[in-house]
Design a protein around this nucleic acid. Sequence first.
DNA 1: CTGAAAGCGCTAACAG
DNA 2: CTGTTAGCGCTTTCAG
Lengths: 326, 326
Amino acid sequence: MHPSTVSRALSPAMKHLVAADVANRIQAAANALGYRLNMAAKGLRTGRSGLIGVLAPDIADPGFPPVLSGIADHLHAQGYATIVADVGSEGSEQDLVDRLIAHGVDGLVLATVTLDDAIVTHCLDSALPVVLVNRLDRGARLPSVAGDDEGGMRLAVDHLVALGHKRIGHVAGPQEISTGARRRAGFEASLREAGLATRNALVETASAYTRAAGREAALRLLTRKSRPTAIVAANDLLALGVYDALATRGLACPDDVSVAGHNDMPFVDMVSPPLTTVRIAQRDMGEAAARLLLGRIANPAGSREHLMLPPRLIIRGSTAAPRPAS
Amino acid sequence: MHPSTVSRALSPAMKHLVAADVANRIQAAANALGYRLNMAAKGLRTGRSGLIGVLAPDIADPGFPPVLSGIADHLHAQGYATIVADVGSEGSEQDLVDRLIAHGVDGLVLATVTLDDAIVTHCLDSALPVVLVNRLDRGARLPSVAGDDEGGMRLAVDHLVALGHKRIGHVAGPQEISTGARRRAGFEASLREAGLATRNALVETASAYTRAAGREAALRLLTRKSRPTAIVAANDLLALGVYDALATRGLACPDDVSVAGHNDMPFVDMVSPPLTTVRIAQRDMGEAAARLLLGRIANPAGSREHLMLPPRLIIRGSTAAPRPAS
DNA sequence: CTGAAAGCGCTAACAG
DNA sequence: CTGTTAGCGCTTTCAG
């Protein structure tokens, strides 16, 4: 049998160029022999590898897997395979991207960028379709899917205000990351609107999105002369660190201090007390990012979209009215 | 410049065949132009893609990310990229493997196999280097890295026996998965050795490793005429389901019933009460699997190794001595 | 030590 | 509708 005919018969797009019975016989033979297209050879010829690269901040961070799952499932359904690269281990982000490009990826999902990340320019230069997920770059130069960070903080702050809290503190995330900066901005705007803004804002910044860093920042917050009656953390990991800080200070949650988190990551409903938090639909976020990327691949000149997913407040046991005596 | 010379200069293995100054000039030029090898073309020629496939049961399952992280980091350090495929979504496992093979993967890590999985034969037939991680196949036909499931259960049961428990129940995992079957076997052997085996064993099997299935199984266990004073679950997710079941029955942990889990997945130290569990070093497991796979790739005829990682008991607040009255 | 030539498996452009 | 031809970017004999 002749190679081109086989190629045509096996390609859905070119199948119409081949006699139906011949096509069927080829299909049958292919199945019988367990024949599989060599994607590398195909890619070499067509310039499309069927591979998508995903850069993750840390696969083991409990917030990321749902996003990855959303990305991978959607891409997989469209016939793509995903290469995941974890930035955690040493080696520059640039290098990772270059390695991915060397493997011929048709597009990239970046879940790692900082606000002024050099990688953005690098990607723009490479002319590769790229979308950002969860985190944004300052200039909005790349298409993105993220949660409404400011709106989410408003939800949390308004909830605490409604409970009667007047001294509300914030454990902010790293300010070089959009989620950290935007959630802090949202926190401050909400306080201002509630008429609760003060000269020395009750804000402490954590150096990383980790439980340990959250504990440190919360400890600083708790030594302020006017101690907050409620703390809203920039994410759930930080909020768990706040729990740790309260424990070491002998303070009870929510009796002494209410705590709210952000993300509704898995199992925060099982901690004690169950964490009040702002849910963002992480799986949907991943799926939307995949969809956006596929759109860019199909039409690289298309408009640069920025999707924002609506947050939702999940009230649990870690927030309550402040003590009357307080 | 001449392609072959460039190829030689850029390949560490062939560099010695080229004049040092020429090699350096080529390196410099390559860096300046931002030249990157096309892995697809290289793979086509050499038969090695630099890609490794990883089959995951469910990326979003909190137990898996640490394993994946261990695998990916180690492989990455050796110059490989990892394609992860999630079996969760529809589409047969065979199909996934075939797709991975179509992409030319140099090896496969399977974290999904059941005891009598057809995929094992399929992989054996394909002559592709494959290693199993966490779960084993019945015939031990593929090399593997897993925890010592029986030893882990012994640790948990002995701990409860030492506390004075006499009626110890088990929420078993799915019996078609090695972890489910072997942990159950370990549980029963340990009870027998402690002289606590009874006619109708206090064992209920969960249909899946989920919190909901754990709850159902625990509920069945709690309606037995002689209710257990302690329950050891086949994994932490199941143990959280046991917590749910106790809550719906109005029973307190550990006052009424002690609970032990397995795996020490992230944040089980934060639930209430903090879960006593058996820790398995999941990151190490992933790393060992990667190392084993690399060994198979280098020497496919090498001996079929089966690594077993030692478990460690982590005692927290969910286990205590039984009530004297009980 | 370096150049020339062939080919990995596939597809696309061009005949027939 | 099908066969022929060429070539994607690389490596690897084989000659010089």
